[in-house]
């Protein structure tokens, strides 16, 4: 009986240590994985008129393409 209990305690302890070793590694892994799907989007632009426009009015309308925003001020 005693030896069975000892074996069980040992098995639980091994399991506990394994979990303790696994968890810290597991948490950053999953957080990092979540970050890749949860992209921080570029701030939207607030536009009232377009020159050479085609009906796409927000950055979301251009998702999937590469956009170069060039800010200028003529003065």
């Amino acid at each position: 009986m005693t030896s069975t209990r000892t074996r069980m305690v040992t098995a639980l302890a091994v399991l506990g240590v394994s979990l303790a070793l696994w968890l810290p590694a597991a948490v950053p892994c999953c957080r990092a994985a979540a970050q890749t799907t949860d992209v921080e989007l570029a701030p939207e632009i607030e536009i009232h008129d377009w020159i050479n426009g085609d009906g796409r009015t927000t950055l979301a309308d251009f998702r999937g393409e590469v956009v170069l925003l060039e800010f200028w001020n003529s003065h």
Binding site: A42, I45, I47, N52, E70, W72
Partner: peptide, 21 residues
């Protein structure tokens, strides 16, 4: 295209200023 308006979410330390999305 030229967009006439504003983009308050961006910091533009100087003009012209480029942002690649």
């Amino acid at each position: 295209r030229v967009a006439l308006g504003s983009a308050p979410g961006y910091e533009t330390p100087e003009f012209p200023w480029s942002v690649l999305i």
